[in-house]
Write a protein that binds this DNA or RNA. Structure first.
Length: 246
DNA sequence: GCGACAG
DNA sequence: ATCTTGTCGC
């Protein structure tokens, strides 16, 4: 993360639990100054999905990243970490609740993925600093967001065919897209997080879309952290053995 | 003041 | 997000 931000976050164990919303807003505005939305250049070999799973009325969070091969989109490794949070869910501040745990899972990966797709937004956010952008600036990783519901902005409903999309705008600027990843099903909201352009995020989301509404990275991440929470998967870093899966 | 509001 | 059962549709 930028050196000037080292004083704002408690390292090495990032902990946002004691922050007030006013302080969190200040951090988002500070992080925004480091955002880079230039087109992504290098070739992509791997893309990861990041997500967390929670038990109702529990402070325990099950975080994880699932790394997929690209463009095949097959799981090749995953990192799971059990942690806790007391920072509440407040629309617009999801990052402060989920990032500490996801960061631990990320640091546990021996090899980092080329891109990370988050279950939440990138710049499709009131202050252009959703969880994907926040994590990207903090770590320098290439990130993007994929949310199931609209957080900010306005948009016209895209056509009902898979692949159709329409821009989400706010205060005169395009901040993401409502994308129909599956025919006749509600669209998902795509936006760049960090180190990629608006167009990059849209193209990648479509490339990662299979037969389900959620793009494969996010879909797998959601599935793995849930299996972790119910005890079907164990904490730690694991390589996937293609031959024993399914 | 009113409506909106990722997970 | 999570808690839940059946049900409608491709």
């Amino acid at each position: 993360m930028p050196d000037s931000l080292n004083r704002m976050v408690i390292t090495p164990e990032l902990n946002y639990d004691q922050l007030t919303i006013a302080e969190a807003t200040l951090i988002q505005q500070q992080l925004h100054g480091y955002l880079n939305l230039e087109p992504f250049q290098k070739d992509i070999t791997t893309i990861a999905g990041a997500d967390i799973s929670l038990a109702l009325y529990s402070e325990t969070v099950y975080a994880g990243l699932v790394v997929l091969s690209y463009p095949e989109l097959q799981p090749i490794a995953y990192s799971l970490v059990k942690s806790s949070t007391i920072f509440p869910y407040v629309p617009g501040y999801l990052a402060f609740r989920e990032i500490p745990a996801i960061l631990k899972a990320y640091e546990q990966l021996p090899v980092k993925p080329d891109v990370i797709m988050f279950d939440g937004n990138g710049i499709l956010h009131a202050r252009r600093m959703g969880i994907a952008s926040h994590f990207g600036v903090l770590t320098g990783a290439v990130t993007m967001g994929c949310a199931k519901k609209k957080l900010a902005g306005k948009y016209d409903e895209p056509g009902t065919f898979k692949g159709e999309y329409s821009p989400v705008t706010d205060k005169g600027e395009v901040i993401g897209y409502a994308v129909r990843t599956k025919g006749n099903v509600k669209p998902v909201f795509i936006s760049p997080g960090h180190q990629m352009s608006l167009e990059d995020s849209l193209a990648l989301a479509l490339k990662c879309t299979g037969k389900h509404r959620l793009p494969e990275p996010t879909r797998y991440a959601h599935e793995y952290v849930n299996r972790f929470r119910i005890g079907a998967l164990t904490e730690g870093y694991h390589k996937v053995d293609s031959w024993t899966l399914f």
